[in-house]
Simulated assay, not measured.
Amino acid sequence: MTNPSKAKGTAWEAALVTYLRVHHNPDVHRNVQMGVKDIGDVSGYYLHAVEAKAEKTITLADYITQANREAIHAQQPFGCAVVKRRMRGTADGYVVRDVRTDVRLMNRLRDMEKALQLAAPAAYALIDEHHQEAAWRTVTERTR
């Protein structure tokens, strides 16, 4: 007989991989568990080691500690937990990181955007417009 909790976690990982392949990177995949040198549940989420969690009781501190440790093992600069939201679809899950990690991520994003603005202002404008439109679509879809 299978473990129902493990089956739920495996289903969440599979749903997350499917979503990320469509909306982020077609090369996203589930990782083989590696014990003490685990590199996270999912690879291919840009610059992140991902710890996928689908549990009734949510323990964010434990998830973040695990994700940050696995980011080191995976040689990724950022770790995050992707937590299933009960009774909702994959897109409604939560991406969680500690403030220290989020500030590093935002600093990197800011610095890279500034560099792109200086090096290729027209390309920056097109990319910025694309992402502004995507954000607007997301907001309007959620308010329907």
Rank of each mutant, 00 (worst) to 15 (best):
M1E: 11
T2A: 15
S5I: 13
K6F: 06
A7S: 13
K8G: 05
G9H: 05
T10Q: 06
A11N: 09
A11G: 02
A11L: 08
A11D: 07
W12R: 04
A14S: 08
A14L: 09
L16W: 02
V17I: 09
R21E: 05
V22P: 01
P26M: 11
V28G: 00
V28R: 04
V28W: 01
H29S: 13
R30V: 01
N31E: 06
V32A: 08
Q33I: 08
Q33T: 06
G35V: 05
G35E: 01
G35P: 04
V36C: 08
K37M: 14
K37Y: 10
D38H: 07
I39E: 01
V42Y: 00
V42I: 14
S43Y: 03
S43R: 03
G44N: 02
Y46I: 15
Y46C: 12
L47T: 11
H48D: 08
A49G: 08
A49K: 02
V50C: 04
V50D: 02
V50S: 01
K53P: 04
K53E: 02
E55A: 10
I58T: 12
I58A: 03
I58Y: 06
T59C: 13
L60A: 11
A61L: 11
A61Y: 10
A61Q: 15
A61P: 06
D62A: 10
I64Q: 01
I64C: 05
T65P: 04
T65E: 09
Q66C: 03
R69F: 06
R69P: 00
A71D: 02
A71I: 01
A71T: 03
I72M: 08
I72H: 10
A74D: 04
A74W: 02
Q75W: 04
P77A: 07
P77T: 07
P77N: 07
P77E: 03
F78A: 04
F78L: 12
G79V: 00
G79L: 04
C80M: 12
C80K: 01
A81I: 03
V82F: 09
V82C: 07
V83A: 05
K84C: 11
K84R: 14
K84I: 02
R85I: 05
G89H: 03
G89T: 06
G89D: 05
T90E: 01
D92V: 01
D92W: 05
G93D: 05
G93K: 02
Y94Q: 01
Y94A: 07
V95Y: 10
V95L: 11
V96I: 13
R97G: 03
D98S: 07
R100P: 06
R100S: 15
R100M: 14
T101S: 13
T101A: 12
L105R: 11
M106N: 14
M106I: 13
M106P: 00
L109M: 11
L109I: 12
R110G: 11
D111W: 14
M112H: 10
E113G: 10
E113S: 09
L116W: 03
Q117W: 00
A120H: 14
Y124N: 12
A125H: 14
I127L: 15
D128A: 14
D128C: 09
H130W: 09
H130N: 13
H131L: 14
Q132R: 15
Q132E: 14
A134F: 11
A134N: 12
T138D: 12
T138Y: 15
T138V: 11
V139F: 12
V139E: 00
V139W: 07
V139N: 07
R144P: 04
